[in-house]
Design a protein around this nucleic acid. Structure first.
Lengths: 209, 209
DNA sequence: TAGATTGTTAATCGATTAACAATC
DNA sequence: TAGATTGTTAATCGATTAACAATC
């Protein structure tokens, strides 16, 4: 059975919560206790986990360490996905330098830009390469993920090249709606603007209430 | 009737899509056309919009300009919310410098940090202030939104001070789960790690299929 | 008027919650 | 064995989609 989008979104939260519990030396946890910590229902937690297997034990609960490792396994944290980042402007630069890719199951292996003034510079121990060489690079190095820190138009142009070269997943900071044009691709959109506007709506509704 | 979370999340997307259409000099659009552009169903678009009013005209469709303005109004884009940012480390610095707050309905009026070495420095035309003076600042300036770019523990400590000082909304980059402890507060969480892990799951599932 | 497209009600679908037998 | 808590089935809830009368 397909795992639903909602369940997938909760997996990293479980992983994080269990990691915290592990640091606090918890050895076991019940779905009820975990539900209090995370603000979910115990029922939902048991449903979610049972998408992947029966990790618990009746009358006891779940082993924190075991469950943590299982979810890490499910997410694939321990098999780094080769990743390239495109666009080393403000946002791209910050992401390349400060996101802990390896902690989350990725390995950053290449940076690209189209600006002659930055090509050749080093960020995060990687040299920024010319975007025109990206196809060659992909064929040789087979990255499976691309981080898009470029404008919509640029994303539109680069997407087919990447997909043809075997890129399977996108961490998409651009406003180009990849899923609309490529249905066989995994996309995680991060739209900070949208997030802010949703917040504006919420706060304004509250104030005007 | 309460507007559902799902509808609110789509409002910024409508706003963006309509802004694009406006730039392309579209004067009208039907729910069917818009559904193709955005990858939704026409039915859903009409349902969503009718949470707020009947903006369309039978047999014609929607005026792009009017709908754009209406949604801007609904989001409250034009009444900037006074906003402070806490934590001017890597992430906080980038956000202060590169997010277009004013475009999204906010006005950044203060930056805070607890590190003596950065207090007094200027970022984004604002001087970084001492976190210890935050209460005074809030009482005098009444910000309604706070951006949290600090660790979980720090967020836990600062949250009650902010909420007591009248902060109504949070753009939360920390892993502190505000909603769990304060129910009368609007929170937009941005968890880049979680987003990456969800992507890892998707790509790994695809590869191992 | 005829054609098009909305606004809105009803039907469907999926996700969350509740309940409880199984079992450690 | 008795108590606790899981795994799983059934019931509920909410969101999406379909249908169509209203109307421009």
């Amino acid at each position: 059975m397909e795992v639903s989008k909602s369940v997938i979104r909760r997996l990293p939260r479980y992983y994080r919560a269990l990691g915290d519990l592990l640091k606090k030396d918890y050895s076991k946890i019940s779905s009820k206790e975990l539900s209090n910590i995370m603000g979910l229902t115990a029922s939902q937690i048991r449903q979610d986990l049972n998408c992947f297997g029966g990790f618990g034990q009746q009358g006891y609960g779940y082993s924190v360490k075991e469950l943590y490792q299982e979810i890490g396994e499910i997410l694939g944290i321990n098999k780094p996905l080769k990743t390239i980042l495109i666009g080393t402007g403000n946002l791209g630069k910050t992401i390349a330098e400060h996101i802990e890719f390896s902690y989350n199951g990725f390995e950053l292996i290449g940076l690209f830009d189209n600006n002659d003034r930055v090509i050749g510079q080093k960020i995060a121990n990687l040299e920024i390469m010319d975007i025109n060489n990206i196809k060659k690079f992909c064929i040789e190095n087979k990255p499976s993920v691309a981080v898009l820190c470029i404008p919509k138009k640029a994303a539109e142009n680069i997407a087919p090249i990447l997909i043809n070269s075997g890129v399977k997943g996108f961490w998409n900071f651009s406003h180009y709606n990849l899923v609309l044009y490529y249905d066989d691709v995994i996309v995680e959109n991060v739209h900070l603007d949208d997030s802010l506007m949703a917040l504006a709506f919420g706060v304004n509704s509250k104030i005007n209430k």
